[in-house]
Design a protein around this nucleic acid. Structure first.
Lengths: 205, 186
DNA sequence: GCTTTAAAAAGTAAGGT
DNA sequence: ACCTTACTTTCTAAAGC
């Protein structure tokens, strides 16, 4: 019947419009975050897979699009924290987190936990810290993580503390507040992680 | 070495039951002191017992959910108190309503620190959820017994979703042996 | 899906002193 | 800097939206 045919067209158009909306949202957020085009493409692929696997039912298009971008950043090794992602999305942090966990699980993305070292280059450049500080921060993260200090800790707070410690050790001191602001964590978290890290590194200061 | 099973502690028991009679919650709320009833917000009336400490959710259908008790015995004792309170309001309550335990939350201690990153890889990323940016615990779902375990860096863990106290013991046994064969304990 | 109730684990956060 | 309170995760039943 003609009506069924029209309905199919209408549905197809609606689906097409939704997909275009999702992809344009991914593009808009990716631009706002300043991530490379390759990440937007990975995010688009993840979104299309989620669509194909019918994972959007009961969830908002924007939520899935945002989560796909969050996952893509991690997959490409240039993670943005949920806090940073939520600043360019109209979906709240908690919803992005739970949607990400859902699509990650359903699509079998097998995402490894974020390595704090992945945040070092970006945070250090925002703080205008030298390569020497970056190398020192990476060393602190590597060494203390091997000793088991990383379990359960947020990657951003962990990276922030190591950067703070490295800036002190390299005589390029940044205050806890400055580091806390770029990493979007509190000074309390930096203080706590910093104390554990310098103790594990056997540094007196 | 202390057997992790010895460290198991029941933290919460959830059970459901019913008095086999419909209730007018509005009048129960009026007569029962300490009752919280806001049907606009939630259809159940909340009544808390002090000893044993628990919270009972009483519904219009006469069905009741009891949560917060530290043992199955405490669940029975708490519900006995709730039943008596309702009888004092001259509401008919069956002599011994059937009480079904729906969930038991347990905590335990493996006695050694855990490298959650290594455990996440070892158990298989497809079998766990570990997002330290969102929550410090690693979520591990077991098929037998059908429970969920939350593993922490300290070596402590939480087991939930079980219906019998033995479920937690079996779960701890399986987790310990799994981590041992992966060489991730000690 | 949400609403409410309880409880533990450990990390993070916010407000007050 | 401390302390307290509170939110994140997991589970489960109930009735209703």
């Amino acid at each position: 019947r003609l009506r069924k045919w029209q309905e199919r067209i209408r549905t197809k158009d609606a689906g097409e419009r939704n997909l275009q909306f999702a992809l344009s949202e991914i593009d808009r957020m990716a631009s706002a975050l300043g991530v490379p085009r390759s990440v937007r493409e990975v995010a688009s692929v993840i979104y299309r897979r989620a669509l194909k696997e019918d994972l959007i039912r009961g969830r908002s298009i924007e939520g899935v699009a945002t989560s796909a971008l969050y996952a893509a950043c991690r997959k490409e090794g240039i993670p943005r924290s949920l806090e940073e992602i939520s600043e360019v999305s109209r979906v709240e942090r908690k919803e992005i987190g739970r949607t990400y966990r859902y699509i990650s699980q359903e699509l079998g993305l097998e995402m490894k936990p974020v390595d704090p070292k992945k945040y070092v280059p970006r945070f250090c450049s925002e703080l205008e810290l030298s390569e020497e500080v970056q190398a020192k921060a990476n060393e602190i993260i590597e060494t203390t993580a091997e000793k088991g200090l990383l379990s359960g800790k947020s990657p951003t707070g962990y990276a922030a503390a190591a950067i703070y410690a490295a800036s002190l050790l390299c005589n390029e001191k940044k205050t806890q507040r400055e580091v806390a602001d770029v990493a979007q964590v509190t000074e309390v978290t930096i203080r706590n992680r910093y104390q554990e890290q310098i103790e594990a590194m056997g540094i007196h200061s | 070495m202390t057997d992790p099973k010895e460290t198991i502690n029941i933290e919460n028991v959830v059970a459901s039951t019913g008095i086999g009679q419909e209730l007018d919650l509005q009048s129960v709320a009026m007569d029962l002191e300490g009752a919280d009833y806001d049907p606009e917000q939630f259809p159940g009336l909340v009544y808390r017992t002090q000893d044993p400490k628990s919270a009972a959710l009483i519904f219009r259908s006469g069905k009741i959910v009891c949560t917060g008790a530290k043992s199955t015995d405490d669940v029975h004792e708490s519900l006995r108190i709730v039943f008596d309170k309702l009888r004092e309001l001259s509401i008919e309550v069956e002599d011994e309503p059937e009480i079904v335990v729906q969930n038991i939350v347990t905590s335990a201690d493996l006695g050694r620190q855990l490298n959650l990153n290594a455990i996440a890889i070892g158990l298989g990323l497809e079998n766990i959820e570990y997002e330290p940016e969102q929550f410090p615990g690693l979520v591990y779902r077991l098929d037998e017994p059908e429970v969920v375990a939350l593993l922490f860096g300290s070596g402590k863990l939480v087991i939930t979703g079980g219906k019998k106290p033995e479920d937690a013991e079996h779960a701890v046994d399986k987790i310990v042996s799994r981590l041992e064969e992966l060489g991730l304990l000690e």
